Every structure is written in structure tokens, then in C-alpha cells.
Amino acid sequence: MPHTKSPIPPVLPTQEQWDAIIQNDSAYDGTFFYAVKTTGIYCRPSCKSKPPLQQHVEIFPSPDRAAAAQFRPCKRCKPEGRQLPDEEWVLQLTELIQQRYAEPLPLQELADRIHGSPYHIQRTFSRIMGTTPAEYTQQIRIQQASRLLTTTKLPITEVAAAVGLTNASHFSTLFRKLTGKTPTEYRNLSLEKEALLDE
């Protein structure tokens, strides 16, 4: 979700600061911190995360100022000097998946979005949630598909596409694995229940 809560006019990076960000120049660490409006996260200049677009960057003189503008510290470069609790980091991941389940979400994409390493994401998420990020994403997709099957008349292929599963055969297989029914069986059962309630 785009970050729009900064209470003061944004300070844009100078060319020197932007060069330091792009080059991950550790010589500038401590002289300024940059925040990315589209992720709501702030970093050190030396952060190895995927470079942001320049127009999305704001500059802050300290971690406290970035935090006051409601930006969160990067998990990878730890700009505030202390580690974000794993539980809070996993919460950010689940919120991201719930918001973007209809998009392709490979592990590297999740890592880029919340500034972590794929290995640490996989290990930490699995430890706290008892499932992998990929499995959790599939669960959210099937939950949303179940809702669409019972509240709309969309064809099965369109339901699949709406939740990020463009292969209808794979969608049906996954749906049955997680619910015990095919999408058609699930929809028909829901219609039968509605008919009984209407009698």
C-alpha cells in the first residue's frame, strides 16, 4: 500500500545522495537515511535491497525523523540499529500477501518488497506461521476463490485468474487439495444450501 502519511513536506534526494543510494555507498551511512514511499520502509544508503525509483524516495537526517513520518525500519540494513522483531516482520509479510495475492509472488519478490533475504524470509515465516510463504499465498488465493464461487457467477477460469492462478487445471487441483472439493462441486453445494434456506 503506498505510503502517504508523511507529516512534513518531503525532502528529495540531491544527486550526490541519489548516487550514494544507487551505489550502496557505506561512506554515507549515518549522514542521511532514505525512505521509499511505496513500501513505507526507510534504509541506510548502503542497503543492498532492490533500488527504488528516484521519485519515490524521501530523505531524512535521522532514523527518528523517518520513524516520526511513520516509515518502518528496513529488516535487511537495520537503519535504527536494532532488529525488527520477527513476529512484526512476519506480520508485514502476511499483510503484503493478503493485499497482493492476485499477483505473482515469488520468494525473491517478497524479499525485495520488505527488504529481507529469501532464505531468512522462508526460515522465519515457516517457524512462526507453521507454513511457507508460498503455501500461505495459496491458502489466501483459495479462500478468495471460495468467496467468489459463492458470491458471483464468474466462470471457473475467471475466478482462477482473479486470484492469481491463470492455469485453470492447476487451480482446480489446488482447490480440491485444500477444500476437498472441485470448484464446481463447491459452488453447487453452496447453491444447494441457499435453495434449502429459501424453502
Rank of each mutant, 00 (worst) to 15 (best):
T4A: 09
S6M: 09
P7E: 02
P7A: 01
I8P: 00
P10R: 12
P10G: 12
V11A: 11
P13I: 01
P13W: 09
P13H: 06
Q15E: 15
W18L: 06
D19V: 11
I22Q: 14
Q23F: 06
D25F: 06
S26I: 07
A27N: 12
Y28P: 00
G30F: 02
T31N: 07
T31Y: 01
T31C: 01
F33K: 11
Y34A: 03
V36I: 10
T39L: 11
T39C: 01
G40Y: 01
I41C: 01
Y42K: 12
Y42Q: 06
C43G: 04
C43S: 13
R44N: 15
P45Q: 07
P45V: 03
K48Y: 09
P51Y: 06
P52C: 05
Q54D: 01
Q54N: 07
H56L: 11
S62E: 04
R65F: 02
R65D: 09
A68C: 02
A68F: 08
A69L: 04
F71H: 10
F71P: 10
P73I: 01
C74Q: 11
K75R: 09
K75W: 07
K78D: 09
E80K: 05
E80I: 08
G81Q: 03
Q83Y: 10
E87G: 02
E87N: 03
E87L: 12
W89F: 15
L91C: 06
L96W: 13
Q98V: 00
Q98E: 15
A102W: 08
E103W: 04
E103V: 03
Q108E: 14
Q108C: 06
L110R: 04
A111R: 06
G116C: 08
G116S: 13
G116W: 06
S117M: 06
T124R: 13
F125M: 05
S126Q: 13
S126G: 07
G130R: 12
G130E: 07
T131D: 07
T131C: 10
T132W: 05
P133M: 03
A134I: 12
Y136I: 04
Q139E: 15
R141K: 13
I142H: 05
Q143R: 15
Q143C: 06
A145I: 03
A145Y: 05
A145M: 01
S146F: 01
R147W: 06
L148W: 04
T150A: 11
T150E: 12
T151F: 07
T151A: 08
T152F: 03
K153Q: 14
K153L: 14
P155T: 03
P155G: 02
I156R: 00
I156A: 08
I156H: 00
T157H: 13
E158T: 05
A161C: 06
V163F: 00
G164N: 07
L165H: 05
A168I: 10
H170L: 14
F171N: 03
L174T: 14
L174I: 11
T179S: 10
K181F: 02
K181Y: 04
T182E: 04
P183D: 04
P183E: 04
P183Y: 05
T184A: 14
E185D: 10
E185F: 05
Y186P: 10
N188P: 00
N188Y: 12
L189Q: 14
L189P: 00
L189A: 15
L189F: 07
S190P: 01
L191A: 11
E192Q: 15
L196I: 11
L196T: 03
L197Q: 12
D198Y: 12
E199V: 10
E199A: 10
